[in-house]
Design a protein around this nucleic acid. Structure first.
Lengths: 190, 190
DNA sequence: ATAGCGTACGAACGTTCGTGCGGTATACTG
DNA sequence: CAGTATACCGCACGAACGTTCGTACGCTAT
């Protein structure tokens, strides 16, 4: 079953790639290093993607799946509204705290890396991040909160701030502060 | 006048280096590129620093000076307290909006780049960022606000969120949202 | 049997990286 | 005026980068 074999190798590569990229960035994700970590030759690994940019784009997509599995899927059975927004925020902060990606939030890393580099990679990152912020906004709107865009922005900011403080300083209290801020934001809006 | 000449050359290099690093990161800041932009030879430029790491550390210090000039110095004549905290926040957001560094907030870029790479560079970044957050916290304490650490964290988060949204999406409204969030944070704490 | 496909390999390509060495022109110091 | 330090240059190095070869294995289908 060659198709299965192919997909499993490729997925194993990408699974490792998102971990590396969250620590070293999508540019620091080098084909040679990835190949040696996978016990493959450079060319063998390279053949799965055809170019470094394709590898980067595939890595972004894989990270997007992992994010969805860890943050969005667990609350999928609830119905839209204030309660699910709260659950989403908890999963969001929890995903940073549990270090689903070893280098912290994948999106924080690659956003800072590519936000000054126009091109398909930056566009792909922008799409995913923007979809997430818009999901928060839609959830706030469904909950009947006023100014959902403002609320989504602040929720996103606070979570990013916690990730940054934890990654740079190892300040675990930042998650507590993030939860406190989120509590207040949601209480005020509802 | 070699001493003067040396310093002015070195400072001119670093002035350009912080701009490049804010867009490409401290690793993407390569000696060859920097040299050609300065119309110098690689070895001539290299001699000013002795190693890439020293160049990175010097670049961090230069960025720190520019940040202090743009954000802290203009409010230096006011006395500590609520009013100066407000002014600091305005300068902080304004510094992102005016793109004092062409790639957006220098610290946002290099923090994400180095927060998973232990070493002197990461330590230097951590020192500066931590000093800034602590300055916000001290200002909040001087203003008599309760839980200054929480307030400083949220102010920092919201500003970083605005920088991120602006750099990635070009969303200029993010600065308005940041100001609105800051207004509410300061009003509640005071 | 044979033809063809997907997967992987090792070797090499040209480029760029950071880093050294040796020389030169200028300027300060005795 | 001789001597030393500075600031810069050209040149070269070894390593790593992304990429492209030609080749060889194991399938599946004819």
């Amino acid at each position: 079953m060659p198709a299965t074999k192919q997909r499993s190798t490729r997925e194993a590569i990408l699974d490792r790639a998102v971990d590396v990229a969250s620590e070293e960035g999508l540019e620091g994700l080098t084909i040679g290093r990835l190949a040696s970590e996978m016990d493959m030759s450079k060319s063998g690994l390279f053949g799965h993607f055809g170019s470094k940019q394709e590898l980067q784009l595939a890595t972004i997509e894989a990270a997007s799946h992992r994010f969805a599995d860890e943050v969005i899927a667990p609350v999928g059975d609830q119905e839209a509204g204030a309660e699910r927004l709260r659950a989403l925020c908890d999963r969001y902060v929890g995903y940073m705290e549990r270090q689903v990606f070893p280098g912290g939030c994948f999106w924080a890393s690659v956003t800072a890396e590519f936000d000054s580099r126009p091109g398909p990679v930056r566009d792909a990152i922008g799409e995913r991040v923007s979809a997430w912020v818009e999901a928060l906004e839609a959830e706030a709107a469904a909950a009947g909160f006023d100014d959902p865009a403002q609320l989504a922005f602040e929720l996103y900011s606070v979570a990013q701030g916690a990730n940054s403080a934890f990654q740079l300083f190892g300040d675990h209290d930042a998650f507590g502060r993030a939860h406190a801020a989120i509590d207040r934001l949601l209480a005020r809006a509802g």
